[in-house]
Computed example of a mutant assay.
Amino acid sequence: MTTVTDTSVRTDDNPFALSHLDALEAESVHIFREVAGEFERPVILFSGGKDSIVMLHLALKAFAPAPVPFSLLHVDTGHNFPEVIDYRDRVAARHNLRLHVAHVQDFIDDGRLRERPDGTRNPLQTVPLLDAIETGRFDAVFGGGRR
């Protein structure tokens, strides 16, 4: 895979040089396109939070004006604000994307997971995530995090 590494600054002498941010964006677009060409059922992790919003924005940019050829997957802890869930659903509908949701609560209810004494559910997301990947037969998963 090719990686974009030219981070020189645009000048009058070099008007085509990429800024650091432009280079990172170009690399991300390239990765989205490569995955689309090499995998059958990729999926983008999408919670409606800031990191996943950026991931979706990059995917939209990578394939514009065509639709994004991936579904979205959210592992819902059950501890989200209703406004975040509403936003998640509106974004998926606006871009005509299929949204898969795995609910941590379902795994607690059927005994596959136990509620933690401290009440946090973020560590409980792994089992529902792996189950959703297997059930959905996803062969590539995009996730975003700040660095």
Rank of each mutant, 00 (worst) to 15 (best):
H103C: 04
I108E: 12
D6Y: 00
I85N: 04
F16I: 02
G48I: 09
T120P: 01
I85P: 03
F39N: 11
A93Q: 14
R112Y: 02
L113Y: 07
E134P: 00
T2R: 10
R146E: 13
E27F: 00
V101I: 15
E25N: 02
D13E: 15
T120W: 11
G37L: 00
H100F: 12
A64T: 11
E27P: 00
R98T: 14
R121E: 03
E38I: 02
N96H: 14
T5A: 05
H30M: 08
V29G: 02
R147A: 09
Q105T: 14
D76G: 04
F142S: 01
D118C: 12
F39G: 01
D12H: 10
P67G: 04
D22H: 00
H74E: 07
A23G: 13
P82M: 08
S8E: 15
H74T: 15
I85V: 15
M55D: 14
R10F: 00
A64V: 01
A92E: 06
L58A: 07
E83I: 11
P123I: 11
D76V: 08
T135M: 03
D110G: 04
F63Q: 02
D89Q: 14
Y87Q: 12
R90D: 15
A140K: 12
L24E: 08
R41K: 15
I133S: 03
R112D: 03
D12A: 13
A102N: 06
V84L: 14
R116G: 06
A36S: 09
E134S: 10
A93G: 05
F63W: 00
D118F: 11
L129F: 14
L21Y: 09
L130K: 13
N122F: 06
H95G: 04
R33I: 05
M1A: 12
P128A: 04
G48A: 10
T11P: 00
S47F: 06
A36V: 05
V29E: 09
R98D: 08
V4N: 05
F39L: 07
T3I: 13
T126Q: 13
H20C: 04
F107T: 03
L56M: 06
T77P: 11
M55F: 00
R41H: 15
F39A: 08
D131M: 00
V75K: 04
D131H: 14
M1R: 07
H57L: 13
A59S: 11
R146I: 10
G136N: 04
I53N: 12
K50Y: 02
D51K: 10
E34I: 00
A132S: 11
G78K: 08
F63A: 03
R147T: 12
A36Q: 01
L58I: 14
P123W: 09
V29N: 01
T126P: 00
R41L: 08
R112W: 05
L18R: 15
D86P: 00
T120I: 13
V29C: 07
A59Y: 10
A132F: 07
R90T: 11
K61W: 01
K50T: 10
R90N: 11
T7E: 12
P42H: 06
T7I: 13
G119R: 01
D76Q: 08
P67L: 02
F142Y: 10
L58R: 15
T126N: 09
